[in-house]
Design a binder for these strands. Structure first.
Lengths: 212, 212
DNA sequence: GATGAGGTGGCACTGACTGCCATACGTCAG
DNA sequence: CTGACGTATGGCAGTCAGTGCCACCTCATC
């Protein structure tokens, strides 16, 4: 290749008018969808309604989101993509559940999802089965990332029981934590995540003072 | 009401021609659906195809199943309904995870789901997102039963962390177990369930010989 | 400012799912 | 045995999610 040794930043620095426009349209659609779902209900809102509210054609809606429910968990891809690298950066000698607890607590990292929006998503997922499915699918894809990471750290194949169970249980804990957070306004999501994962680490056999 | 003090069995004893016919139709549709999904793929099979194969009208299909994917997890309601009572019958002093392990192992109880059919369902769920969603929704409804049962046994509200996490983690273990069973032909599902729940009970912190 | 690539809208189409009504068939009383 | 009733079924029309195709327009590049 020729002398194109520009600094790496140059490759992405000017997002360009086109890119910014696309991003604005995407947000407009996602915002309109979330807003309409909340106010009129999921089933009562048509894609045509959302498109009209976002001032695009219905056809364009489907250029940004493959399905109606996808518009709710807009940043799903970013969240999933962030999880792997964040885990990889944890110290190799750290207990796996501690790594998961740390990364899980940092879920609502500034640039990705803001707390208020995430809460609205969860509230919708609690009520609308289609949205809940989408949320669980997101957790499922993150779970796959965790399996790969855990298998590598444990020196086991990805098909082994321990990495699979560790990932599945961690995502179960994360889901319980987000549910609990939703039910308890004013609390910190990170605290719920910590509590859930710690309980997992201690082992669920000790039934909180019962026979065990 | 008058003296209708017949023995309880009388209320349900003769299933009647009508009931039996309905049951046969239901099975015919479910069988046709599973078969066609396997052979042609889920998306490539229309409700019209299934209806034709089961020798009913498309309209009738929707009288038995609300959605296309529902036809796969036909006995979902029975399985869910069976879980609660089975848990309730476990000895009150038994550790909760032991109860869950016992009931989970007995999943494929004779009258409900046969092993071969369950394996086919899982294989389909592993490939088709819509079917997987349905499977996870089934696990989710069972999870709710477990939460109620665990909360009652622990003397805690259903909103408490421990019963919720216990139920979520147990269902995660059950899912991992069924997945592992699917990947390992010739093994016993019960063994996988036992192994997964035992690992959960021991606590996931002990990273299999690592630092912990 | 021409040219090409990529974003957008319109249109037609498939297929899931629903409401409505007419009809056929078990069920049960007389 | 028969007629009346309740329920299962089928057909039809309609809504809406989602897709392929093509024409148009707009930003980026030389």
């Amino acid at each position: 290749m020729p002398a194109t040794d520009y600094p790496p930043e140059t490759m992405v620095s000017p997002p360009g008018l086109r890119e910014r426009k696309k991003e604005r349209t995407r947000r407009a659609i996602a915002d309109a969808a979330l807003d309409l779902f909340e106010r009129r209900g999921y089933a009562a809102t048509t894609v045509e309604d959302i498109a009209a509210a976002a001032d695009v054609s219905p056809r364009t809606f489907f250029r940004y989101f493959a399905t109606k429910d996808e518009a709710v968990f807009d940043e799903a891809d970013e969240v999933q993509a962030a999880f792997g690298p964040m885990l990889a950066e944890r110290p190799p000698d750290e207990p796996l559940l501690a790594s998961l607890r740390a990364v899980g607590s940092a879920l609502l990292t500034p640039g990705v999802v803001d707390e208020e929006r995430f809460r609205r998503m969860l509230a919708l997922a609690a009520v609308e089965p289609a949205v809940r499915n989408r949320y669980h699918a997101l957790l499922g894809s993150i779970e796959q990332e965790i399996v790969r990471w855990a298998a590598e750290r444990l020196g086991l194949p990805e098909t082994a029981l321990r990495p699979r169970l560790l990932a599945a249980a961690a995502m179960a804990a994360l889901r319980v934590a987000t549910d609990a957070w939703l039910d308890a306004p004013g609390t910190e999501l990170g605290d719920h995540v910590t509590a859930a994962i710690d309980m997992l680490a201690e082992g669920l056999a000790g039934d909180g003072g019962r026979s065990g």
